[in-house]
């Protein structure tokens, strides 16, 4: 048995090895890009802050939303490095806990959008014909909507909540992945290893799962990284107009909205959560740009 499989195994290992070599080169290029490294560090810092929020702040209960009316509107100080809000809650604690909602909406939206968009794109590109036509016209219609507005309409219809905001945004995002994957699949279908697999009678489903999907994942991942930043922005915008996580659940967009009322006299209420959104989304954008350049061998070499 092993002897029979041997040539296939060897080829598989060879292919993996060249793939690994490719990844090694990408990693090295990444290490030299200080902007990308800094961006990743900022993102990891915020993720760390969100995950370990209860242990990082002396006021975890305030972070979760419990009011502390004796200490309203305190400006930044040693006790409260970013000040306190209208209910006396520590703004830093709120930002750490708010990262849990704001960051997860970014990741989850992209994950859902990829989960819907990728299979549809692969099906459309692989089978073509009426299925392709139907799926692509559907994406045309969804792309015809300005995404934020459609998300607002859907979220308003479903009722304001964290889950609904996430679903609403994801529903407006999947068509981009469908288009991307379809284009990739179309070109892959013509490649020899796919033709060979079909030629020896491998089932269609297996071809898609084994040969098409693994090969479209790199561009999808690059796109996804670049999209997380905008997803966080959109999520923050949704909760800013009251369609996201509902109080007392902390959320950066909601915190900016709350701080807006007191902004002129107590600017720290809105400034710091807004800065958090800005930093994270900026980092994802910079990281996405770098990853796109690094994933493309042409720009990787030119960047040296």
């Amino acid at each position: 048995m092993t002897t029979l499989l041997r040539p296939f195994l060897e080829r598989w290992i060879r292919e993996r090895r060249s793939q690994l070599e490719e990844y090694r080169l990408m990693l090295r290029a990444f290490g030299r890009d200080w902007l990308a490294v800094a961006s990743l560090a900022i993102i990891l810092l915020f993720v760390f802050g969100a995950v370990f929020a209860p242990w990082l702040t002396p006021y975890p209960e305030q972070g979760r939303g419990e009011p502390n009316v004796l200490e309203k509107f305190l400006p930044p100080s040693w006790q409260h490095p970013l000040g306190t809000d209208n209910l006396g809650r520590d703004v830093l604690a709120r930002i750490l806990f708010g990262g849990r909602t704001s960051l997860s909406i970014g990741f989850l939206v992209v994950i859902i959008a990829v989960a819907i968009g990728t299979p549809l794109g692969a099906l459309a590109g692989y089978f073509g014909g009426w299925l392709d036509e139907a799926i692509m016209r559907l994406t045309d219609i969804f792309l015809a909507f300005p995404s934020l507005l459609l998300a607002i309409a859907i979220a308003a219809a479903l009722g304001p909540s964290f889950t609904n905001a996430m679903i609403a945004v994801a529903l407006t995002w999947w068509p981009w992945y469908t288009r991307l994957v379809r284009a990739q699949t179309l070109s892959l279908r013509e490649r020899s290893f796919v033709e060979a697999a079909r030629g020896i009678g491998v089932r269609e489903g297996t071809v898609i799962l084994r040969h098409i999907l693994p090969n479209v994942m790199t561009p999808v991942l690059v796109q996804a990284t670049m999209d997380i930043g905008s997803a966080i922005l959109t999520g923050a915008a949704m909760s800013f107009i009251g369609l996201g996580a509902q109080p007392p659940t902390p959320d950066w967009g909601e915190m900016v909205n709350l701080g807006r009322i007191y902004f002129i006299n107590h600017p720290w209420l809105a400034t710091f959560p807004g800065l958090a959104i800005f930093l994270v989304s900026l980092s994802f954008n910079l990281l996405g740009d770098s990853i796109r350049d690094i994933a493309d061998p042409r720009t990787r070499r030119a960047a040296r």
Binding site: F240, G253, A270
Partner: peptide, 22 residues
Amino acid sequence: AVAAVSIPTFWLGLLLQLIFFG
């Protein structure tokens, strides 16, 4: 360019109000 596409619109609006009005 990259800062402009990363900044939350609603937050930027507040900052501008704070500077140019406040």
